[in-house]
Structures are given as structure tokens and as C-alpha cells.
Amino acid sequence: MPVTVETPTEKWAGKVREITLGATAAEGGTRTSTVTVGGEGTMPFLHFEGETPHRPVVAIEIYDIAPQDWSPILMDYWGDVVNDVVAWAKKAVELGADAIALTLRGAHPEVNDRSPEDSARVVKDVLAAVGVPLIVYGPGAPDKDNEVLVAVAEATAGERLALGLCEQNNYRTIAAACMGSGHIAVARAPIDVNIQKQLNILISDMGLPLDRILMDPTTGALGYGLEYTYSVMERLRLAALQGDAMTQQPMICTAGHEAWRAKESKVGEGVPEAWGDWKERGIAWETVTATSLIEAGADILVMRHPEAVAIVKKTIDQLVAK
């Protein structure tokens, strides 16, 4: 007796909001290419159920100074370009970056304490050197983040950068800067669906339109809390599809930063033999972290190793193929 199976399709009331990073000359910026993410009307890549109008994208992360604490594997790969942020950005684009994620580490009071004005100039230099959209992170010290990002926002008005991080206890200044200069805010919550939603509400209550807020659910690397991020992302996507307007922001994940902080990718000696080859392991660690997050609904992956980027982009090709 032949059995007929009906496709078990879920009917969703909502979808992820579309957000475009970067603005071309016609749109008031200087980008030669922009990136649009979001718009998904289904759990990730279930094409029988709903649309995935835009593919997830990969941003390659660079610093404005040579990183002090990166894994030797990464430093070996990039070589000298890490000393020249402009060259580094160009190289990253050559290697397939859909966007550049620039961390202004040099502005940190305990690193180079670079001034907000100088930091803004670095951003301008990178904008001049590459045509892809930029995601700009502050140095990671709340007060300085605010100063630097306000300067960057003003100096780059109209470029539609993504600026981060807006966090629960420090969101107003950066969100206001985005509001005034036409940028996008990256809202990071500590692996918590509710706090993420609350942060989105708070930022939107300030008047920043929802199509200018990205969610960063905080990334746990493979073996270091990946499952929490994974589930939080699934829950956020489900809520978005169920029509909760305050969870419909596209998601950005810092897969590279977290994966390369793991002992597995950072340390080569004195580790168990069962861990295998260090370099390959590091790349695999970043790859598995990133692909798992894509399966959970990531829209933008911020990554570090171009070989991992290549595999992840290929995986994305496969997943968006109908």
C-alpha cells in the first residue's frame, strides 16, 4: 500500500526584518557594494516552507593595530598586513570578505589610548581603501567605546556602518549616535532571549528604527557554550517567525573572536594528542562554530581565518541553493 506523505509545513506569522549594511554614493555613502541580510520567513534554509531572500554573509575581522593576543596560527596566516589596517582590509576583501569588521582596539585606554578623532580617521582610511560595508567595534571599554563610536559615527555619517556594541547597561550613547548619523546599532545581550528582546525594545524606544538594529546574541565557541548561543538563536528566530516584532532583527555572531579564544585553537603545545594537528584544528574549530551558528539562524558571521571563511562560504552556497 503506497503511503502518501504530506509536507509538514509550518505557517509563520512573521519574518526576519531586512537590513542593509553600507550605503552607495546614490544612497549617501561611498560603498561600492552593500550587503542586505534578513528577510527569512522560515527556520533556517527550509525552502519548502518559506523564503530565504538573502544569504548569510561573512565579515572578516581586523584590528586597527597589530593584535597582541591572537593565536599564532592567525598571526602566521596574515603575516605583515596586521601592521597596516588599510592593507589588511584590502587583503580581507581579496580573500572573500562580504564586509569588514574593524575593531578599534588601539583606542583602548590600556592599549594605545588612541583618541576618538584618530580612531575616526582610521575608519575613514579603511572606508577609502575598500568598497564593502563596515562593521565597527569600539575598543571594549564602555566609556571609551562611547567616545570613539560617537566620533566615528559623526565622521562617517551616511555610510550606514554597523556600530557596536550596545549593551544593557550602555546603549543610549551609541544608539543615539547611530540615530543621528544614519548608522546601524549592534545590540548585544548575554546569551539570553529575554534580555536581547528587552535591549531591542529599549533601543527602539529611543527612536532608532528597527531596520537599523542588529542582534548579537553573544557567541559561545564550540565547546565553550556554543549550545547556549545555538538555542537562544533558535528561540529568537522562532519568536520572530511567530510574529514578535521585537525579535525580528537579523543576527550577527562573532564566531572568529570566540573560536580563536578557545584553548583548542590558541594553544599548540602540551595538549592531548587526540586533539590532532594544531593549525587544522583551529580552522576546524572556527568552521564548526560558524556553520553551527548558521544552522541556528545567523545572518552575519564575523570570522578571522580565511580558510575557515572559504569553507563557511561554500557551506552557505550549499544551504541557500534551492
Binding site: L222, L226, E264, E273, W275, D277, E280, A284, V288
Partner: peptide
């Protein structure tokens, strides 16, 4: 290959 198996087992 341990390099490839270890991440999968961890995941």
C-alpha cells in the same frame, strides 16, 4: 582524523 573528529565530538 583527530583534528576533524574532535570538533565533531565536542559539538
Amino acid at each position: 582524523d583527530p583534528t576533524l573528529i574532535y570538533p565533531l565530538l565536542t559539538l
